[in-house]
Amino acid sequence: MMRLWVPLGILLTWGIMAIGSHILPLTPNTIDLTHILIGPNQNSWLGFDELGRSIADRLITGASTSFFVALSVVALGILIGGTLGIASGYFSEWVDQIFVRIVDIMLAFPGLLLAIALAGALGPGIENVVFALVIVGWVGYARLARGQVLALKHADHVIAAQAMGASPWRIMSKHLFPLITAPLIIEVSFGIAGAIIAEAGLSFLGLGVQPPEASWGSMIRDGTRYMLVAPHLVLIPGLTLMVVVLAANLLGDWLRDWLDVKEPKMRK
């Protein structure tokens, strides 16, 4: 049970930090030159950065950035990719042919590379990061949904629904979608991990949120210049980022084992 509750607890904390950043009286952008580069101590657990800003406050604000981006990217990806994938798998023939071509081309790109180029061309800003990551990310969900629907669309209950005159929309939403949620949920978990890393990566490159707004990625970038004198500037946001990503990956692993109970290897 540890495999479920520890990652879940970490991800919940992440969400609470993200929501809390809008409620708590934080001062992530307040510059205090008397506190420059002070390390963790008894009065402030996480210390201060190169402008004397509280790292704890910036960390919590950064959680909000990554939470917002990860959730939007995954939700939009599922919405666009899932819908297109299900429709393509269900209708087959020429719709499917075009769809498969598009997916093949999208997959011919190194995903992160395209996201970096798009975010760079669009200019900095969190909406642009979401846009770039959705453009790259929907393909995975679409391919997954299509594959699942292809395997399911000749199932008895689908044929029965067709015989009763159900509309394609009804069949796709009521008879196919509920059956493919399990693999999609697993994909969502890994998708969240990927989106967090991608957002932080873009912010690290200066293509994400703009200063003085905080992102874990931009905190790492700003901190690298002071690494020798104040390694905590790099260590703290990086460790936080890694723990959250690890939790999302672990949850995905757990879900995969848990939802795949029918696999014969597991029964042995």
């Binding site: 890393i197 990625g217 790492i220 901190g223 690298t224 690494m227 790099v234």
Partner: peptide, 22 residues
């Protein structure tokens, strides 16, 4: 392997610089 998958390279890079170079 799980750690390797979860550690972002823009964090690992600076860490390696800190240890291996500095």
């Amino acid at each position: 392997a799980l750690f390797g998958m979860s550690i972002p390279n823009f964090w690992m890079g600076p860490l390696l610089i800190l240890v291996g170079a500095l």
